[in-house]
Design a protein around this nucleic acid. Structure first.
Lengths: 243, 243
DNA sequence: TGAGAAAACTGGTCTAGTCCAGTTAATACG
DNA sequence: CGTATTAACTGGACTAGACCAGTTTTCTCA
């Protein structure tokens, strides 16, 4: 460990070393980094110091962790336009990536006060809940938690729910989204959502909440999407007409 | 430190204790938490453990740090609609908060290849750069880095630039935004932006990049907004017409 | 009473471990 | 050869410091 010299030259931090290796392509997207213990030895630093560097790179979105499995170089971010909302499978595919969907849960429950207020129904109303995990290139990146008013969609839980839900709603029930309210929050992934994404509780995430309404103003669905934060850019085109 | 009992009951984590106190209003938004050393003593934990709990709360957006000044309870998140784009001052005020703007920098420079490509001009073209810090309730929350083609706005740097830039552009130069491309990225605040926000490099942030064009498709301005990530929800209303 | 210096305070960064808990790979056995 | 068990590996979480660097408060002195 060299002392600071008169020119304030410093040994590059581990953050900088790894960032450089990612930038130059020495470390490829999706590849696993050496383990914390290996980096610790190679760099002559303690594991705590290595972890701090990795966690900073995680916050920056350059690397991601998988709980007890290792650290990985993040891939190029996907563009996601919540206004256009092309659907996960299509959006991922057309950006040259491989999407996959698994339905984790489908159940019928009774609306809590919180859920009732989001769906515009009475507390206790029957509600379907779907939970899906979305993967890009085999990496779990998104948990969707979808709530639908059961009365509107009889037999829904028997349908194939791995594909496009909006298509099922349109074709089986003639229900189409006309207007949506979307709220995006930068937060941490916790509890069941973190577990379902194979990450430690507290990993950085993005929560996207959507309330979709039909042309009569009735709620079509209420969704919460829990994204790993390094995976995407939210990309919008806005147009101001006459205002 | 009690052992786990047969029912897996656990002493609540510091994260949970602090989150509960925030939730119940025991810790008020904007108030400073006890120092790391105090919490360490009170809870009988090391500072490393306290820091981890605080950093998780930071990722969740419940608390925020100021470099070498302490940890604070985050206020309720602001709703920010990048489509509507009401302007910082107005948007903050109408949500019952106190905005402030400081111009940090105004200069004329020559477009680098990167900047040239974002402004749709040749490398080396004269460009104005403005940098402003925005505060909510005296807390620095946003650094705006704004680039404008100098030739379009003669004398701009002499104008009052603490107020609404779009108004200055409209009234002095007859330039109005017609369409914008917006890209939002969850990342870390680094270097000069972190410093200008009084936070340590690596603090969680949101980068919002905007390319605004007039009705002829010419670039009106190119901005980068560096936000503290706990401050806002991005809130949008979308409308699907006929598609 | 105001300015400058010193002290106390705050977070930032690092060392050196230990133990826990889930995952993956290797080994043993039927 | 497949299944179950064991070992190795991985990150997660914690202890106990030390030292650095910027901020704020207190003290001193003119």
């Amino acid at each position: 460990m060299q002392k600071k010299d008169a020119n304030r030259a410093r040994r590059p931090s581990l953050r900088d070393i790894l960032a450089r290796r990612i930038e130059t392509g020495d470390l490829q997207p999706g590849s696993q980094l050496a383990s914390e213990r290996e980096l610790s030895e190679e760099c002559g630093m303690t594991r705590v110091t290595v972890r701090e560097a990795l966690q900073q790179l995680e916050t920056e979105g350059l690397v991601y962790r998988m709980n007890r499995r290792g650290w990985f170089v993040a891939a190029r971010r996907l563009d996601y336009d919540p206004v256009e909302d092309a659907g996960f499978m299509r959006n991922v595919s057309r950006q040259g990536r491989t999407p996959k969907t698994e339905t984790l849960l489908k159940e019928k429950l009774q609306a809590s006060p919180w859920l009732a207020s989001h769906l515009g129904v009475r507390v206790g109303t029957a509600v379907f809940r779907l939970q899906r995990r979305r993967c890009i290139d085999e990496r779990p990146v998104l948990i969707e938690d979808i709530f639908l008013i059961a009365q509107r969609y009889p037999g829904l839980l028997k349908a194939d729910l791995d594909g496009s839900l909006s298509e099922v709603l349109a074709q089986r029930y003639g229900v189409r989204t006309h207007r949506s309210r979307i709220v995006l929050t930068s937060t941490a992934l916790l509890g069941p959502q973190a577990d379902a994404l194979w990450v430690a509780s507290g990993t950085p995430g993005l929560l996207l909440t959507r309330t979709a309404r039909d042309s009569h103003g009735q709620v079509v669905e209420f969704d919460q999407e829990y994204w790993r934060h390094d995976v995407l850019n939210i990309a919008l085109t806005t147009s101001i007409s006459g205002e």
